[in-house]
Design a protein around this nucleic acid. Structure first.
Lengths: 144, 144
DNA sequence: TTAAATTCGGATAGATTTGTCTTAAATAGA
DNA sequence: TCTATTTAAGACAAATCTATCCGAATTTAA
């Protein structure tokens, strides 16, 4: 469904959000240890999120990554997916046709848009904050 | 969502189904011309579908591919997806965790399974026959 | 029996995604 | 200022997915 990069991106963002809510900035090492992801590859994805102003990166000793506390309940999963995977999930025909729309649909079009719109709504309606609280209370996990 | 291979596989199967309903066996060339896909790669995918007994292949002059007429309304999209892409769409965590279930869920688990179950139901509830009729009546398309 | 048509199967090649390495840049603190 | 720490950025490498090529096998028909 999502690319590996996107999976790491969401998991990293959630951990950063959780720590940011506690006033803690986190290092790359802390992130990859927590979400169990490859260091250098994860770093690339964090750069992407930083360039898209979803997270803030700070160099130097005690540097690392954080998210503006006030923004955390305003950052939707869709923004992260968009930054990492682009809009390919939302757009495009289920059967790979270039032109496929209600006027000239592929055989799967009508059924496919229903499912995909649900996915879209889910991503657009879910904030980092909502998901981070589950982590904080120990109800959900980012590893294994 | 689906791999390229799976997209070609579904499109090919739909065309074969449509022609089989008209009593016509179709060649690889006819298929790739109709669905606008790369010949050799499509051949590989058709081999997969044949090995999974979704389609029947015949060698030699006037050979080609067909689907047992009686089976066409009994073959669900899920079978094709399964043959080509495996069960990765149905199983597996949205965030890529190896262990993720209701007992030890990732933060996205509950929302994700809702969407994915809809996809699963859609694929399991849609037969080649249903989709082929749209093609036959000119309401839907397999190209562009 | 021979030739032509067609799929099968393995090897190979190209493209994309995933992942690593190395050096540079920035920053904090001694 | 110097050093240690940390992220940034680009080059490179490995793995996977997509696609091609070619000879073998099968079948039909002349």
């Amino acid at each position: 469904m999502f690319s590996k990069a996107c999976e790491y991106g969401i998991r990293a963002a959630l951990f950063i959000a959780q720590e940011s809510l506690n006033g803690q900035r986190v290092s790359l090492k802390a992130i990859t240890a927590e979400i169990d992801s490859p260091d250098a590859f994860t770093a690339k994805i964090l750069q992407l999120l930083a360039r898209n102003e979803i997270i803030v990166s700070t160099k130097g000793p005690n540097g690392g990554f954080e998210i503006d506390k006030k923004k955390i309940d305003n950052i939707m999963l869709s923004e992260i997916v968009d930054a990492v995977d682009g809009d390919s999930i939302y757009k495009g025909c289920g059967l790979g046709l270039k032109e496929c729309n209600a006027d000239k649909p592929c055989p799967l079009h009508n059924r496919f848009v229903l499912v995909r719109n649900d996915l879209k709504k889910m991503l657009e309606g879910t904030s980092l904050f909502e998901l981070a609280t589950g982590l904080e209370t120990g109800l959900t996990f980012l590893k294994r």
